[in-house]
Design a binder for these strands. Structure first.
Lengths: 201, 201
DNA sequence: ATCCCACATTCCACAGTTGACATGTCAAGA
DNA sequence: TCTTGACATGTCAACTGTGGAATGTGGGAT
Protein backbone atom coordinates (compact mmCIF):
# COMPACT_ATOMS: atom_id res chain seq x y z
CA UNK A 1 0.00 0.00 0.00
CA UNK A 2 2.78 2.46 0.76
CA UNK A 3 4.21 2.18 -2.72
CA UNK A 4 1.48 4.48 -3.93
CA UNK A 5 2.35 6.97 -1.21
CA UNK A 6 6.03 6.75 -1.98
CA UNK A 7 5.23 7.65 -5.57
CA UNK A 8 2.93 10.49 -4.51
CA UNK A 9 5.56 11.78 -2.09
CA UNK A 10 8.31 11.73 -4.70
CA UNK A 11 6.13 13.64 -7.12
CA UNK A 12 4.76 16.07 -4.55
CA UNK A 13 7.40 18.69 -5.14
CA UNK A 14 8.64 18.00 -8.62
CA UNK A 15 7.01 16.31 -11.56
CA UNK A 16 8.95 13.39 -13.01
CA UNK A 17 8.78 10.55 -15.52
CA UNK A 18 8.48 6.92 -14.65
CA UNK A 19 12.14 6.51 -15.45
CA UNK A 20 13.11 9.42 -13.14
CA UNK A 21 11.09 7.82 -10.37
CA UNK A 22 12.85 4.54 -10.92
CA UNK A 23 16.13 6.35 -10.45
CA UNK A 24 14.91 7.96 -7.24
CA UNK A 25 13.86 4.60 -5.90
CA UNK A 26 17.23 3.12 -6.78
CA UNK A 27 19.32 5.85 -5.30
CA UNK A 28 17.54 7.49 -2.45
CA UNK A 29 14.74 5.24 -1.39
CA UNK A 30 16.12 1.79 -2.02
CA UNK A 31 16.42 0.86 1.63
CA UNK A 32 13.47 2.87 2.80
CA UNK A 33 11.08 1.62 0.19
CA UNK A 34 12.39 -0.72 -2.44
CA UNK A 35 10.30 -0.74 -5.59
CA UNK A 36 10.59 -2.63 -8.84
CA UNK A 37 9.94 -1.45 -12.35
CA UNK A 38 6.77 -3.47 -12.62
CA UNK A 39 5.46 -1.91 -9.48
CA UNK A 40 6.33 1.66 -10.31
CA UNK A 41 4.91 1.66 -13.80
CA UNK A 42 1.93 -0.29 -12.62
CA UNK A 43 1.29 2.16 -9.83
CA UNK A 44 1.67 5.16 -12.09
CA UNK A 45 -1.08 3.79 -14.25
CA UNK A 46 -3.34 3.10 -11.29
CA UNK A 47 -2.76 6.48 -9.66
CA UNK A 48 -3.44 8.22 -12.96
CA UNK A 49 -6.62 6.23 -13.49
CA UNK A 50 -7.67 7.12 -9.95
CA UNK A 51 -7.13 10.82 -10.58
CA UNK A 52 -4.30 11.21 -8.06
CA UNK A 53 -1.73 11.87 -10.79
CA UNK A 54 -1.91 13.22 -14.28
CA UNK A 55 0.42 13.30 -17.23
CA UNK A 56 1.62 16.88 -17.48
CA UNK A 57 3.91 16.57 -20.47
CA UNK A 58 5.14 14.13 -23.06
CA UNK A 59 8.58 14.11 -24.54
CA UNK A 60 10.79 12.17 -26.90
CA UNK A 61 10.97 8.38 -26.61
CA UNK A 62 7.50 8.04 -25.21
CA UNK A 63 8.41 9.97 -22.11
CA UNK A 64 5.55 10.87 -19.80
CA UNK A 65 5.94 13.44 -17.12
CA UNK A 66 3.65 12.95 -14.12
CA UNK A 67 2.43 15.50 -11.64
CA UNK A 68 0.35 15.14 -8.47
CA UNK A 69 -3.22 16.38 -8.63
CA UNK A 70 -4.85 18.18 -5.70
CA UNK A 71 -6.63 14.91 -4.89
CA UNK A 72 -3.29 13.17 -4.90
CA UNK A 73 -1.84 15.75 -2.56
CA UNK A 74 -4.79 15.31 -0.21
CA UNK A 75 -4.26 11.56 -0.21
CA UNK A 76 -0.61 11.99 0.65
CA UNK A 77 -1.47 14.26 3.57
CA UNK A 78 -4.22 11.91 4.73
CA UNK A 79 -1.78 9.02 4.75
CA UNK A 80 0.81 10.99 6.68
CA UNK A 81 -1.54 12.37 9.29
CA UNK A 82 -4.35 9.85 9.66
CA UNK A 83 -2.79 6.44 9.37
CA UNK A 84 -0.23 4.65 11.48
CA UNK A 85 2.93 3.18 9.99
CA UNK A 86 2.64 -0.52 9.33
CA UNK A 87 4.99 -2.42 11.61
CA UNK A 88 7.29 -5.05 10.25
CA UNK A 89 6.50 -8.52 11.36
CA UNK A 90 9.33 -10.59 10.04
CA UNK A 91 13.01 -10.56 10.72
CA UNK A 92 15.14 -13.23 9.14
CA UNK A 93 18.08 -12.79 11.48
CA UNK A 94 16.02 -13.12 14.61
CA UNK A 95 14.23 -16.12 13.20
CA UNK A 96 17.61 -17.75 12.83
CA UNK A 97 18.53 -16.77 16.37
CA UNK A 98 15.60 -18.83 17.60
CA UNK A 99 17.00 -21.89 15.98
CA UNK A 100 20.67 -21.40 16.82
CA UNK A 101 20.26 -24.37 19.11
CA UNK A 102 20.40 -26.54 16.03
CA UNK A 103 24.01 -25.53 15.58
CA UNK A 104 27.12 -26.14 17.61
CA UNK A 105 28.05 -23.31 19.92
CA UNK A 106 30.97 -22.50 17.66
CA UNK A 107 28.70 -22.25 14.63
CA UNK A 108 26.24 -20.12 16.55
CA UNK A 109 28.95 -17.74 17.71
CA UNK A 110 30.20 -17.61 14.14
CA UNK A 111 26.76 -16.60 12.90
CA UNK A 112 26.49 -13.80 15.42
CA UNK A 113 29.98 -12.57 14.76
CA UNK A 114 29.36 -12.44 11.03
CA UNK A 115 26.25 -10.46 11.79
CA UNK A 116 28.25 -8.03 13.87
CA UNK A 117 30.78 -7.60 11.08
CA UNK A 118 28.07 -6.95 8.56
CA UNK A 119 26.61 -4.26 10.79
CA UNK A 120 30.00 -2.71 11.35
CA UNK A 121 30.42 -2.48 7.60
CA UNK A 122 27.07 -0.85 7.23
CA UNK A 123 27.79 1.65 9.95
CA UNK A 124 31.07 2.53 8.25
CA UNK A 125 29.30 3.02 4.93
CA UNK A 126 26.74 5.31 6.53
CA UNK A 127 29.45 7.29 8.23
CA UNK A 128 31.02 7.74 4.82
CA UNK A 129 27.71 9.03 3.48
CA UNK A 130 27.49 11.40 6.41
CA UNK A 131 30.88 12.85 5.60
CA UNK A 132 30.16 13.16 1.90
CA UNK A 133 26.89 14.84 2.58
CA UNK A 134 28.45 17.35 4.90
CA UNK A 135 30.89 18.43 2.24
CA UNK A 136 28.98 18.35 -0.95
CA UNK A 137 25.60 19.99 -0.78
CA UNK A 138 22.91 20.94 1.62
CA UNK A 139 21.57 17.61 2.79
CA UNK A 140 17.88 17.04 2.78
CA UNK A 141 16.74 17.85 6.27
CA UNK A 142 14.54 14.78 6.39
CA UNK A 143 17.10 12.62 4.70
CA UNK A 144 19.43 13.44 7.53
CA UNK A 145 16.91 12.20 10.04
CA UNK A 146 16.76 8.92 8.16
CA UNK A 147 20.54 8.73 7.95
CA UNK A 148 20.81 9.14 11.69
CA UNK A 149 18.25 6.36 12.14
CA UNK A 150 20.31 4.10 9.94
CA UNK A 151 23.45 4.88 11.88
CA UNK A 152 21.86 4.24 15.24
CA UNK A 153 20.29 1.05 13.96
CA UNK A 154 23.53 -0.33 12.58
CA UNK A 155 25.33 0.56 15.79
CA UNK A 156 22.67 -1.02 17.96
CA UNK A 157 22.61 -4.19 15.90
CA UNK A 158 26.36 -4.51 15.93
CA UNK A 159 26.52 -4.08 19.67
CA UNK A 160 23.72 -6.56 20.22
CA UNK A 161 25.31 -9.13 17.96
CA UNK A 162 28.62 -8.84 19.79
CA UNK A 163 26.85 -9.12 23.11
CA UNK A 164 24.91 -12.13 21.90
CA UNK A 165 28.05 -13.81 20.59
CA UNK A 166 29.67 -13.25 23.96
CA UNK A 167 26.61 -14.70 25.72
CA UNK A 168 26.57 -17.80 23.57
CA UNK A 169 30.32 -18.21 23.87
CA UNK A 170 30.15 -17.81 27.65
CA UNK A 171 27.51 -20.53 27.82
CA UNK A 172 29.88 -22.92 26.16
CA UNK A 173 32.48 -22.22 28.80
CA UNK A 174 30.01 -22.58 31.64
CA UNK A 175 28.54 -25.73 30.20
CA UNK A 176 31.84 -27.41 29.81
CA UNK A 177 31.15 -31.13 29.75
CA UNK A 178 27.43 -30.62 29.28
CA UNK A 179 27.66 -29.06 25.87
CA UNK A 180 24.71 -30.79 24.32
CA UNK A 181 22.31 -29.94 27.11
CA UNK A 182 23.37 -26.33 27.48
CA UNK A 183 22.55 -25.51 23.88
CA UNK A 184 18.88 -25.87 24.64
CA UNK A 185 16.58 -24.66 27.29
CA UNK A 186 14.88 -26.98 29.72
CA UNK A 187 12.42 -28.29 27.21
CA UNK A 188 14.67 -28.05 24.19
CA UNK A 189 12.16 -25.78 22.59
CA UNK A 190 13.26 -22.22 21.81
CA UNK A 191 9.71 -21.00 21.42
CA UNK A 192 7.98 -21.59 24.69
CA UNK A 193 8.04 -18.22 26.39
CA UNK A 194 6.17 -15.34 24.89
CA UNK A 195 8.28 -13.95 22.16
CA UNK A 196 9.62 -10.44 22.47
CA UNK A 197 8.53 -8.00 19.89
CA UNK A 198 11.19 -7.40 17.39
CA UNK A 199 9.11 -5.50 14.97
CA UNK A 200 10.76 -2.79 13.06
CA UNK A 201 9.05 0.05 11.43
CA UNK B 1 11.06 -18.59 1.75
CA UNK B 2 11.86 -18.45 5.45
CA UNK B 3 8.39 -19.63 6.38
CA UNK B 4 9.45 -23.12 5.43
CA UNK B 5 12.48 -22.81 7.65
CA UNK B 6 10.45 -21.44 10.51
CA UNK B 7 8.22 -24.49 10.29
CA UNK B 8 11.23 -26.83 10.10
CA UNK B 9 12.84 -25.07 13.03
CA UNK B 10 9.74 -25.30 15.18
CA UNK B 11 9.43 -28.99 14.45
CA UNK B 12 13.12 -29.75 14.82
CA UNK B 13 12.90 -30.65 18.48
CA UNK B 14 9.30 -31.65 19.00
CA UNK B 15 6.72 -32.97 16.61
CA UNK B 16 3.52 -30.95 16.46
CA UNK B 17 0.23 -30.58 14.61
CA UNK B 18 -0.63 -27.76 12.29
CA UNK B 19 -2.76 -26.28 15.03
CA UNK B 20 0.11 -26.45 17.55
CA UNK B 21 2.34 -24.69 15.06
CA UNK B 22 -0.24 -22.00 14.59
CA UNK B 23 -0.19 -21.46 18.34
CA UNK B 24 3.60 -21.21 18.35
CA UNK B 25 3.52 -18.66 15.57
CA UNK B 26 0.91 -16.63 17.42
CA UNK B 27 2.62 -16.65 20.77
CA UNK B 28 6.35 -16.90 20.31
CA UNK B 29 7.17 -16.05 16.75
CA UNK B 30 4.55 -13.49 15.85
CA UNK B 31 6.98 -10.60 15.63
CA UNK B 32 9.92 -12.62 14.45
CA UNK B 33 8.06 -14.43 11.70
CA UNK B 34 4.39 -13.76 11.35
CA UNK B 35 2.52 -16.53 9.58
CA UNK B 36 -1.10 -17.00 8.68
CA UNK B 37 -3.19 -20.11 8.79
CA UNK B 38 -3.23 -20.42 5.03
CA UNK B 39 0.51 -20.23 4.89
CA UNK B 40 1.23 -22.69 7.65
CA UNK B 41 -1.09 -25.40 6.45
CA UNK B 42 -0.05 -24.79 2.89
CA UNK B 43 3.61 -25.08 3.81
CA UNK B 44 3.05 -28.25 5.81
CA UNK B 45 1.61 -29.84 2.72
CA UNK B 46 4.50 -28.70 0.54
CA UNK B 47 7.18 -29.73 3.00
CA UNK B 48 5.58 -33.13 3.37
CA UNK B 49 5.33 -33.57 -0.38
CA UNK B 50 8.99 -32.58 -0.63
CA UNK B 51 10.00 -35.18 1.94
CA UNK B 52 11.24 -32.69 4.51
CA UNK B 53 8.41 -33.55 6.92
CA UNK B 54 6.27 -36.57 7.49
CA UNK B 55 3.08 -37.28 9.32
CA UNK B 56 4.08 -39.28 12.36
CA UNK B 57 0.69 -39.74 13.94
CA UNK B 58 -2.97 -39.04 13.46
CA UNK B 59 -5.42 -38.30 16.20
CA UNK B 60 -9.03 -37.33 16.76
CA UNK B 61 -10.59 -34.51 14.75
CA UNK B 62 -8.36 -35.10 11.78
CA UNK B 63 -5.27 -34.17 13.76
CA UNK B 64 -1.97 -34.74 12.00
CA UNK B 65 1.27 -34.75 13.91
CA UNK B 66 4.29 -33.73 11.83
CA UNK B 67 7.93 -34.58 12.40
CA UNK B 68 11.06 -33.45 10.58
CA UNK B 69 12.77 -35.99 8.38
CA UNK B 70 16.56 -36.27 8.15
CA UNK B 71 16.35 -34.38 4.84
CA UNK B 72 14.33 -31.68 6.56
CA UNK B 73 16.92 -31.41 9.29
CA UNK B 74 19.67 -31.08 6.71
CA UNK B 75 17.75 -28.31 4.96
CA UNK B 76 17.36 -26.44 8.21
CA UNK B 77 21.07 -26.67 8.90
CA UNK B 78 21.92 -25.68 5.35
CA UNK B 79 19.73 -22.59 5.66
CA UNK B 80 21.29 -21.62 8.97
CA UNK B 81 24.88 -22.10 7.93
CA UNK B 82 25.02 -21.49 4.21
CA UNK B 83 22.67 -18.64 3.48
CA UNK B 84 22.67 -15.05 4.59
CA UNK B 85 19.66 -13.49 6.26
CA UNK B 86 17.53 -11.52 3.85
CA UNK B 87 17.65 -7.85 4.71
CA UNK B 88 14.52 -5.82 5.00
CA UNK B 89 14.10 -3.21 2.37
CA UNK B 90 11.04 -1.32 3.41
CA UNK B 91 10.27 0.75 6.45
CA UNK B 92 7.01 2.60 6.57
CA UNK B 93 8.06 5.02 9.28
CA UNK B 94 11.20 6.12 7.50
CA UNK B 95 9.30 6.50 4.26
CA UNK B 96 7.04 8.93 6.05
CA UNK B 97 10.04 10.74 7.46
CA UNK B 98 11.16 11.49 3.92
CA UNK B 99 7.93 13.26 3.23
CA UNK B 100 7.53 15.10 6.51
CA UNK B 101 8.17 18.24 4.53
CA UNK B 102 4.63 17.96 3.27
CA UNK B 103 3.42 18.70 6.80
CA UNK B 104 3.69 21.73 9.00
CA UNK B 105 6.51 21.63 11.49
CA UNK B 106 4.01 21.10 14.25
CA UNK B 107 2.48 18.14 12.47
CA UNK B 108 5.90 16.67 11.77
CA UNK B 109 6.95 17.00 15.40
CA UNK B 110 3.65 15.42 16.37
CA UNK B 111 4.34 12.44 14.15
CA UNK B 112 7.77 11.91 15.64
CA UNK B 113 6.53 12.30 19.19
CA UNK B 114 3.80 9.74 18.63
CA UNK B 115 6.43 7.43 17.28
CA UNK B 116 8.52 7.94 20.39
CA UNK B 117 5.54 7.20 22.62
CA UNK B 118 4.77 4.03 20.73
CA UNK B 119 8.34 2.86 21.17
CA UNK B 120 8.27 3.70 24.84
CA UNK B 121 5.18 1.57 25.20
CA UNK B 122 6.85 -1.27 23.40
CA UNK B 123 9.94 -1.04 25.53
CA UNK B 124 7.78 -1.12 28.67
CA UNK B 125 5.96 -4.19 27.40
CA UNK B 126 9.23 -5.97 26.71
CA UNK B 127 10.55 -5.07 30.14
CA UNK B 128 7.42 -6.64 31.54
CA UNK B 129 8.13 -9.79 29.58
CA UNK B 130 11.66 -9.78 30.88
CA UNK B 131 10.44 -9.68 34.45
CA UNK B 132 7.83 -12.36 33.91
CA UNK B 133 10.33 -14.60 32.28
CA UNK B 134 12.75 -14.19 35.12
CA UNK B 135 10.19 -15.37 37.61
CA UNK B 136 8.25 -18.05 35.87
CA UNK B 137 10.36 -20.59 34.08
CA UNK B 138 13.73 -21.03 32.53
CA UNK B 139 13.61 -18.75 29.53
CA UNK B 140 14.75 -20.11 26.22
CA UNK B 141 18.39 -19.13 25.91
CA UNK B 142 17.89 -18.03 22.35
CA UNK B 143 14.59 -16.38 23.10
CA UNK B 144 16.42 -14.22 25.57
CA UNK B 145 18.81 -13.08 22.87
CA UNK B 146 15.84 -12.03 20.77
CA UNK B 147 14.21 -10.31 23.73
CA UNK B 148 17.34 -8.26 24.30
CA UNK B 149 17.35 -7.31 20.62
CA UNK B 150 13.76 -6.13 20.90
CA UNK B 151 14.58 -4.09 23.99
CA UNK B 152 17.57 -2.44 22.43
CA UNK B 153 15.65 -1.77 19.24
CA UNK B 154 12.72 -0.16 21.03
CA UNK B 155 15.08 1.95 23.09
CA UNK B 156 17.08 3.04 20.07
CA UNK B 157 13.98 3.92 18.13
CA UNK B 158 12.50 5.90 20.98
CA UNK B 159 15.68 7.87 21.44
CA UNK B 160 16.00 8.53 17.75
CA UNK B 161 12.40 9.71 17.49
CA UNK B 162 12.84 12.09 20.41
CA UNK B 163 16.05 13.40 18.89
CA UNK B 164 14.37 13.81 15.52
CA UNK B 165 11.42 15.64 17.05
CA UNK B 166 13.83 17.98 18.76
CA UNK B 167 15.70 18.55 15.51
CA UNK B 168 12.55 19.36 13.60
CA UNK B 169 11.26 21.55 16.41
CA UNK B 170 14.56 23.38 16.61
CA UNK B 171 14.41 24.10 12.90
CA UNK B 172 11.12 25.84 13.40
CA UNK B 173 12.62 28.09 16.00
CA UNK B 174 15.66 28.88 13.92
CA UNK B 175 13.57 29.49 10.84
CA UNK B 176 11.25 31.88 12.58
CA UNK B 177 9.65 33.99 9.85
CA UNK B 178 10.83 31.64 7.12
CA UNK B 179 8.72 28.74 8.15
CA UNK B 180 7.73 27.59 4.69
CA UNK B 181 11.24 27.56 3.33
CA UNK B 182 12.82 25.87 6.30
CA UNK B 183 10.61 22.85 5.98
CA UNK B 184 12.39 21.87 2.81
CA UNK B 185 15.93 21.56 1.68
CA UNK B 186 17.40 23.75 -0.99
CA UNK B 187 15.62 22.06 -3.82
CA UNK B 188 12.52 21.12 -1.85
CA UNK B 189 13.20 17.50 -2.70
CA UNK B 190 13.79 15.16 0.23
CA UNK B 191 15.38 12.50 -1.92
CA UNK B 192 18.44 13.99 -3.45
CA UNK B 193 21.27 12.67 -1.40
CA UNK B 194 22.03 9.00 -1.37
CA UNK B 195 19.68 7.45 1.03
CA UNK B 196 21.00 5.95 4.20
CA UNK B 197 20.45 2.30 4.63
CA UNK B 198 17.74 1.66 7.07
CA UNK B 199 17.44 -2.00 6.42
CA UNK B 200 16.59 -4.17 9.28
CA UNK B 201 17.18 -7.85 9.51
C1' DA C 1 -29.09 -35.00 26.02
C1' DT C 2 -27.64 -30.48 24.49
C1' DC C 3 -24.69 -26.65 24.05
C1' DC C 4 -20.54 -24.36 23.30
C1' DC C 5 -15.86 -23.65 22.79
C1' DA C 6 -11.59 -25.29 21.56
C1' DC C 7 -9.35 -28.32 18.47
C1' DA C 8 -8.42 -29.14 13.65
C1' DT C 9 -8.23 -29.02 8.84
C1' DT C 10 -8.93 -27.23 4.02
C1' DC C 11 -9.90 -23.66 0.78
C1' DC C 12 -10.75 -19.00 -1.44
C1' DA C 13 -10.11 -14.53 -3.92
C1' DC C 14 -7.40 -10.95 -4.07
C1' DA C 15 -3.26 -8.07 -3.53
C1' DG C 16 1.59 -7.49 -3.46
C1' DT C 17 6.33 -8.86 -4.91
C1' DT C 18 9.93 -10.70 -7.80
C1' DG C 19 12.85 -10.94 -11.54
C1' DA C 20 12.86 -10.87 -15.26
C1' DC C 21 11.30 -10.13 -20.46
C1' DA C 22 10.28 -7.14 -24.37
C1' DT C 23 10.28 -3.20 -27.49
C1' DG C 24 11.44 1.21 -29.14
C1' DT C 25 13.98 5.92 -29.30
C1' DC C 26 17.52 9.27 -28.86
C1' DA C 27 21.96 11.17 -28.93
C1' DA C 28 26.86 10.99 -28.69
C1' DG C 29 30.96 9.01 -30.36
C1' DA C 30 33.63 6.50 -33.73
C1' DT D 1 26.60 6.15 -41.31
C1' DC D 2 26.70 2.86 -37.73
C1' DT D 3 27.04 1.51 -32.98
C1' DT D 4 26.08 1.66 -28.34
C1' DG D 5 24.39 2.92 -24.08
C1' DA D 6 21.14 5.54 -21.80
C1' DC D 7 16.47 6.91 -21.90
C1' DA D 8 11.82 5.15 -21.78
C1' DT D 9 7.82 2.41 -21.52
C1' DG D 10 5.03 -1.72 -20.88
C1' DT D 11 4.17 -6.69 -19.69
C1' DC D 12 4.55 -11.44 -17.83
C1' DA D 13 4.34 -15.68 -14.89
C1' DA D 14 5.26 -17.42 -10.65
C1' DC D 15 5.42 -16.90 -6.03
C1' DT D 16 4.23 -14.94 -1.42
C1' DG D 17 1.13 -12.69 1.64
C1' DT D 18 -3.61 -11.35 3.45
C1' DG D 19 -7.69 -12.07 5.71
C1' DG D 20 -10.63 -14.32 5.94
C1' DA D 21 -14.39 -18.31 5.01
C1' DA D 22 -15.90 -22.92 5.64
C1' DT D 23 -16.55 -27.43 7.67
C1' DG D 24 -16.26 -30.93 11.03
C1' DT D 25 -15.05 -33.15 15.74
C1' DG D 26 -14.37 -33.84 20.60
C1' DG D 27 -15.06 -33.06 25.27
C1' DG D 28 -16.54 -30.64 29.30
C1' DA D 29 -20.24 -28.19 31.49
C1' DT D 30 -25.03 -27.72 32.22
Amino acid sequence: MSLRHAVLGLLADTSASGYDLMKSFETSLDHVWHATQSQVYGELGKLTAAGLLEVSDEGPRGRKEYVVTPAGRDELRRWLTETEPVRQRRNDTLLRVFFLGELSTQEAVGFLEREAERCAGERAALEEVEKTVGRVEPFSVNGRLALEFGLRLATMQEEWARWAAAQVGAREKAAGAQDGAASHDASGRPVEPKDPESSER
